[in-house]
Amino acid sequence: MAITAETLAIAERLRRQVGSIVDDVTRSLTAAWVGAWDQVVVEVIAAIGELLQLGDGKWPTRRQIFRSARTISALDLIGQTLDRLATATLAQTAVAAAQAARLGIEAQGDLVASQLPYGSTRALAAKYGVQQADTIDAIARRTAERINAKHWPLSDEATRRMKNELVRGVVVGDNPREAAARMVRNLEGEFNGGLGRALNLARTEILDSHRAAAEAGQEAHGDVLAGWVWHCELNSSRGRTCPACWALHGTVHPLSEPGPIDHQQGRCSRTPKTKSWADLGFDVPEPPDLIPNAREVFDLLPEDEQVAIMGRRRLDLLRSGEIEWEDLPQLRTTPDWRDSYGVRPVKDLERIAAERAHRAA
């Protein structure tokens, strides 16, 4: 049941490959949103100019705004553009989810083989080397269904926010040109809010598809596996790993448990863990498990990096022993989404510390 250096190398390679898929989608969607705004902003500027004239030195009323022909034209164009972007997000996410799922299911044989004695791995790879394409297709379909059922359409929300921004208006004052520029910036921010939601959706669903495929691949190896290990990137320089994931890293879970169920856009992975060599019938010494101990890695980080990860108060509570490493994660339930672990708020950690101190007194 030893995770070896080869296991860790395969897991890291897989992490980079999936990360590359996520980053490609991020770049593509960002470019699409920027290009789309460049196309609609001309109509937006014209509509704002008309509204400034309607108001006679003041921002017009709601009735005037939505009776303006240029406003109607601009909002129609924005809605059509956001619908097109939403459709593109769905399509790109489904394709990327299938790619990430394929990587996840195909890597499990190598991850398992890397933990077994030399000479047994060839037979294992041959036994499990062929995976069913319909498993990947099913995961991609479920991804598309989740997007449609729970998170769509993004365009309606963004359009509503832009309408609210128009109604809220600006202080016109003595310089209509500056007022118009402020309004354009405000509307651009709301338009790009759709991008933020699309990226959150795309990244989360792609990563969840990868984990679902890894789970399916590990089920095929169930006769030699003891479970799976929560595996996160213990690298503070990239700023991606939250305190909850640091605390959950290295924990072992049964194969039947989905996950890792980390937060939205979380990049933690599930690494299979084999049964002991003795349990598998190998009468040879087993090497030590090499998966890094998260607390030991964290304690070796420079002070500023520890603070950047934990925050000053959370770090002080940990160092004083008032809270434990295991207190950091908190299971959360989100409507229309799966349960997930996030970092426990400082105020809740302080309450835990106070209760613990009271019991000890």
Rank of each mutant, 00 (worst) to 15 (best):
E303R: 11
G311K: 02
D299H: 09
I291K: 02
L315G: 09
I291V: 13
E305D: 14
R312D: 15
P302R: 00
L301Q: 08
I309C: 07
L318W: 07
E303P: 00
R295I: 07
A294K: 01
I291C: 10
L317C: 06
Q306Y: 05
N293M: 00
V297A: 14
G311C: 02
P302W: 07
D316P: 00
L315A: 11
E296N: 08
A294R: 01
L301M: 14
R312V: 13
E303M: 05
R295F: 02
D316C: 00
P302G: 01
A294D: 03
L300Q: 15
V297Y: 05
R312G: 12
R295Q: 15
D316T: 11
L317Q: 08
L317A: 05
L301W: 15
R314F: 08
G311T: 06
I291S: 08
R319L: 12
R319V: 08
R313Y: 00
R312P: 03
V307D: 02
P292S: 10
L315Q: 13
F298N: 02
P292G: 09
V307G: 03
L318F: 10
L290C: 11
E303L: 05
E296M: 09
R312N: 14
L290P: 01
R319N: 14
R313S: 13
R295K: 14
A308N: 04
V297N: 08
D304H: 11
L318V: 11
L318H: 10
I309W: 08
V307P: 00
P292W: 11
D299G: 13
A308E: 09
